[in-house]
Amino acid sequence: MTTQNQPIELYYTPTPNGRKITIALEELDVPYKIHPIDIGAGDQFTPEFLAVSPNNKIPAIVDPEGPDGNPISIFESGAILKYLAEKFGKFYGTSWAERVKIDEWLFWQVGGFGPMLGQSNHFSRYAKEKIPYAIERYKNEGHRLFRVLDTQLQKMQDAGKDYVAGDVSIADFAIFDWAQNYLNYGVEAGEFPTFEAWLKRFGERPAVVRALAVKFEKTPVDADKAHATMFNQR
């Protein structure tokens, strides 16, 4: 099994996309160091962060023990989850068929579930102009996606499995924190009981509890600059 001696550097904001990665790192039980990115203060637009995440979005990681022992930076939460699962050989199935199923639900989250809920949240809560068509459109699509998730979880339950793609995997890591605030997306309590049971079951995993408790504390800017400089010279 792969071991990790130097901590993985995680550029992090406590959002659903950020928590995907703390959940993965806690579940994998590998050392990591948080570099807080205060998106309200514009930290995501600094040249130092751009060197790690060219899309100026969190999360991003730098693994000082990447392929062939060389540092590697990775941005986009789905790519990070796949990298970590493949490197450490956990939470990504044991066969090609299992990995295909996990990929389906991982990409379902990054391509649809997260973006649609994000749009729903934006137009319902933050848009300066309330546009009824946009609010209704994204609310309805969010509700549909929760129904899709519940249907999949029911299928897995019927097969004697507890998680989205069978056994617990990076698909669950990706979906969970986006799903927690389901009542804000037009879903009523008790409407999707299989989904709610999964949410509770997954949320009670010790590693998930630890991941959700990660504190967001600013670190000196010089530390981030020093690390980014090191990485750019690799």
Rank of each mutant, 00 (worst) to 15 (best):
Q119D: 02
G166M: 10
P220A: 15
Y185Q: 05
F195Y: 10
T229Y: 13
I170P: 05
F195K: 07
A41K: 11
R205E: 04
A24D: 13
P14G: 10
N55D: 07
F123R: 11
E76K: 03
E104H: 09
K218G: 05
T2L: 11
A207K: 07
G190L: 09
P7R: 07
P54F: 13
F146I: 08
R137A: 00
A159Q: 12
L106S: 09
L106M: 13
N232R: 15
Y163L: 08
A165W: 02
R234A: 13
A165K: 00
Q44N: 15
N56W: 02
L25M: 05
V110H: 04
D68H: 06
A85V: 10
T46V: 00
A223D: 13
N232T: 15
L81H: 02
Q4R: 08
Q119M: 13
M116Y: 15
S124L: 12
E141V: 01
Q180H: 05
F123Y: 15
T194C: 07
K161D: 09
P59K: 04
Y11H: 08
L25P: 00
V110I: 14
Q233P: 12
T151L: 15
S124Q: 13
G40Q: 12
A213R: 00
D222V: 08
T46F: 01
N121G: 12
P16M: 00
K101G: 05
W198I: 04
W108M: 10
Q44M: 09
H227V: 11
A24I: 12
Y133Q: 06
G142S: 15
A179Y: 01
